[in-house]
Nucleic acid binder design. Sequence first.
DNA 1: CCCTAGCGGTGCT
DNA 2: AGCACCGCTAGGG
Length: 162
Amino acid sequence: MAVIVPIALPEGVFLAHYSPCGLCGLDWPRAKKPRLADQGPKPALPRLRLWHHQTRQALRRVLAGEPAGRLPPLDVSAGTPFQRRVWRQLRRIPTGQTRTYAWIAAVLRQPRAARAVGNACGANPIPLLVPCHRVVPCAGGLGGFSGPLAWKKRLLELENAR
DNA sequence: CCCTAGCGGTGCT
DNA sequence: AGCACCGCTAGGG
């Protein structure tokens, strides 16, 4: 239930999904799982154009290793309460920094839920702009990724992440 | 390095 | 209600 708009960049064609409430999804180029085609209620055209402009600019900046800047409204209504709490914390991780799954869990006052945090990161429908790539295992290494793992590595290198 | 046990959210049945 | 699946972690070889 959204309208799907492509974003063509040198890295490939990303697909942005918009509901009447905002950006609700971002697909990687050549994403394996095609979401449902656009149907259902759509945002009015003027705001869609504004939102999409903001999405494209933010995406370009993140892909350059810079802070995303202004984002369109994000529609995370498809997420569970726990997932939304995790995603909110992801948005607080500055460019160039990382957090561990356990750190996120501790901030949420559920210190034993590190694994569940990993699940929630994997369910993030808006990668790059909701920076799930900045979450890593406390033992070191990259951890997992829902998109291509090479992207996680590349993004962290771009941001000179510690 | 490996293995194992414990963990909590989620989705399926 | 049960159960298997995980982007995890801590502890022990």
